[in-house]
């Protein structure tokens, strides 16, 4: 494998941090090598710094996008950690619907949910499956479910909604699989009624979150772990800004907001915790 020199490493981690917020320290040199080597070859580059120069010079940003796809860890599964989905089903959604119906009894209750780094879509579809099973007739509600990610490749798969047998095996119970997916060879595709309530778009969480609108619930799981503390603080503050008062935030099971964003209050529901924006 092509070796990366210490100088090249410094240039490239700075570049990756600038374009994605992903922060790599010296111990991750091997990671750059395994993940970028094929891009070096593919683009006819003589070295990693050559790849960096080409990426910077490329106005179409094709190489930049490929670097992001290669460097981002898209590891995800259906119903990851399971407990956030229990909280959603038994606590958050029922509370929100009560709140909305009390306020405007004649309007279909509105619920807006955002999965901030949705990777290949498993998180979004898990949320959608919870909604479908809980609310049955989705037309009676005003639902908006948005999935975003910085990786084009991840968003493309999420939007297509098709998973291979290994992805399907992870986290999805047999009854949910047969009810909400249809088989196509070795792959399974999410059914149209679920796909219809979901939308996807590409979004870099480091940039201002303009134009997204307001949300009642935000899932931001297992992405801030790749950022510096400073970037985490900024991110969770921006999320607090676009949440409705009292809005809900779910973070990854091994993440913490202590000293990151005091605007959220951790709350326990049975076995797991969620965060609520302080009013």
């Amino acid at each position: 494998m092509k070796k990366i020199t210490p100088d090249e490493f410094q240039i490239i981690i700075k570049y990756i941090h600038d374009i994605s917020g992903i922060f790599l320290d010296q111990s991750k040199a091997y990671l750059l090598e395994t993940r970028l080597e094929s891009l070096v070859k593919e683009n006819g580059c003589s070295s990693y710094s050559d790849l960096y120069r080409k990426a910077k010079a490329d106005a179409s940003k094709v190489i930049e996008r490929k670097i992001i796809d290669a460097i981002s860890t898209n590891e995800t599964l259906f119903f990851r950690d399971s407990s956030p989905f229990d909280v959603l089903q038994h606590k958050i959604i029922p509370d929100l619907i009560d709140l909305r119906t009390a306020k405007s009894p004649f309007l279909p209750p509105q619920i807006r949910i955002w999965s901030a780094a949705c990777s290949t879509g498993q998180e979004v579809y898990s949320i959608a499956i919870v909604l479908k099973e809980l609310l049955t007739d989705l037309k009676k509600y005003n639902l908006k479910l948005l999935g975003t990610d910085i990786s084009d490749a991840a968003i493309a798969q999420a939007s297509y909604g098709s998973y291979n047998k290994f992805e399907i095996e992870r986290g999805l119970q047999a009854d949910k699989l047969s009810q909400h997916f249809s088989r196509n060879g070795d792959n399974w595709k999410i059914k149209d009624d679920i796909r219809a309530i979901v939308s996807f778009r590409k979004l870099n969480l480091l940039l201002p979150l303009n134009g997204l609108g307001k949300f009642d619930i935000v899932f931001c799981r297992n992405v801030a772990i790749y950022f510096t503390i400073e970037d985490r603080k900024k991110l969770f503050n921006k999320i607090a800004d676009i949440l409705e008062p009292g809005g809900y935030l779910i973070i990854g099971s091994t993440e913490s907001l202590t000293d990151i964003c005091p605007r959220f209050e951790p709350k326990r529901y049975i076995k797991s915790i969620f965060y609520q924006l302080k009013e």
């Binding site: 950690d81 091994t254 202590t258």
Partner: peptide
């Protein structure tokens, strides 16, 4: 991840 999660959430 499960064990770390329990510990971190309790601490939180």
């Amino acid at each position: 991840e499960f064990n770390a999660g329990q510990t971190i959430q309790n601490l939180e």
